[in-house]
Design a protein around this nucleic acid. Structure first.
Length: 390
DNA sequence: GTTCTAGAAC
DNA sequence: GTTCTAGAAC
């Protein structure tokens, strides 16, 4: 217990250091409001991939159905049937909203004369501010509060308003929402505290709701969640793996929507190099970087959509590491080093995965240090402790 | 990706 | 009997 507390204290100090030092080193930032603008290429990529992440503007007092805010579409709102606001102080065109689903915020421009605000910040006529999950938008005079919810829209082109309701998002559930305390202690990586009630999933699933987003889309949700983000800059975001397979296990994800290694093209080279640099920095800033060995790489056939670079310490000391698939995905050629992916892209212009790679997950359990075969996961975990202590 | 659990392995 | 795995379901 004492050790866990100590560990958490270290982590918090580490996070603070990361905030200042890492930002300096790689030009990254920690306040998502400061994220600089990306190009509009993303919009095209979304259309090409058929993936349509969208925000939903949710009336806090549930006076009307949530309003879908499609990526890069402008939405003018104010007094009228859509919001059911009848207050004369509210203009019919009170605000213009523009969602950037990839970077996780909506731009709010005040068009009306009376003040629109986001939390305590008054936008001001003609001005615009960012609005993120966890914040509250007050349409006018600190009245008519709204929150943002984010989810993947599974029907490209957009669902009709009638059937489009925010749904529960299982992968937005944080570790601390399930058997919280035990998990936090046992996984040795503290889940960040979540004050973002607006972005939390619905607890119940009513018949009129659409089915939940597929689990494989979970990273796209997590990477947008400010409570999950450990680092971010204009190109990438880093989150802690929700089910870490070692004492330190981060994921570096590009803001650009790249579904898998297969989708990588030469134009992604600089992005991949940047992802590796950020991963390297994560390691360098880690208080245990001198004691633990780290590897940076990609799963050849990842379960989760959206390219993500694993930055993982090689202790594999985690209760979340439970089965052969977990083990072999990090200790066989199923795990492709970041530098090898970059080299392959440089050489071939593509990243290919060898036939039979999925079979690597079924290989016998073998210690990653001494290569001795172990019969079961519990025995393997007992065995690797020996290397950890030596 | 995780959880759950039947049944294999011990 | 218990432990552990592997496949289904999510």
């Amino acid at each position: 217990m004492e050790q866990s507390v100590h560990y958490l204290v270290l982590l918090r100090r580490f996070s603070c250091r990361l905030c200042s030092e890492l930002s300096e080193e790689v030009g990254g930032i920690w306040d998502s409001a400061l994220v600089s603008a990306l190009t509009e290429d993303w919009s095209n990529q979304v259309q090409n991939t058929g993936e349509m992440p969208t925000f939903w503007l949710v009336s806090e007092d549930e006076s009307h159905k949530p309003i879908q805010l499609l990526h890069y579409h402008t939405h003018t709102l104010g007094r009228g049937p859509e919001t059911r606001i009848k207050d004369q102080k509210c203009s019919r065109q009170q605000v213009e909203l523009r969602a950037d689903c990839n970077r996780g915020f909506v731009t709010v421009k005040q068009l009306g004369s009376n003040p629109t605000s986001v939390d305590d910040v008054v936008v001001g006529k003609g001005n615009q501010v960012t609005f993120k999950p966890g914040q509250k938008l007050y349409m006018v005079n600190r009245l008519y509060p709204y929150t943002l919810q984010f989810r993947e829209e599974s029907t490209p082109g957009g669902a009709s308003e009638e059937k489009s309701r925010p749904m529960k998002r299982p992968h937005q559930r944080d570790a601390h929402e399930e058997k919280d305390e035990d998990k936090e202690k046992s996984c040795r990586v503290s889940a960040p505290s979540c004050s973002n009630s607006a972005a939390r999933p619905e607890k119940t699933h009513t018949p009129e709701m659409e089915p939940a987003a597929h689990w494989s889309q979970g990273l796209k949700v997590s990477m947008q969640d400010p409570n999950m983000q450990v680092y971010k800059d204009e190109k990438v975001v880093v989150i802690k793996d929700k089910y870490p397979k070692a004492r330190y296990h981060w994921l570096v994800l590009p803001w650009d929507s790249i579904s898998s290694l297969k989708a990588l093209r030469p134009e992604h080279m600089e992005l991949l190099k940047h992802m590796q640099r950020v991963g390297d920095r994560m390691v360098q800033q880690c208080p245990s970087s001198t004691k633990l060995h780290f590897r940076l790489g990609y799963h050849a056939i990842p379960s989760m959509s959206h390219v993500h670079l694993h930055v993982i310490s090689q202790d594999f000391d985690s209760p979340c590491l439970k089965n052969k698939k977990h083990w072999n995905s990090f200790t066989t050629d199923y795990f492709i080093e970041s530098q090898d992916v970059i080299a392959m892209l440089e050489r071939d212009g593509r990243v290919s995965v060898k036939d039979g790679t999925s079979e690597l997950l079924k290989l016998p359990l073998r210690c990653h240090v001494c290569h001795k075969e172990q019969s079961t996961i519990p025995k393997l975990k007992e065995h690797i402790r020996v290397h950890l202590l030596s």
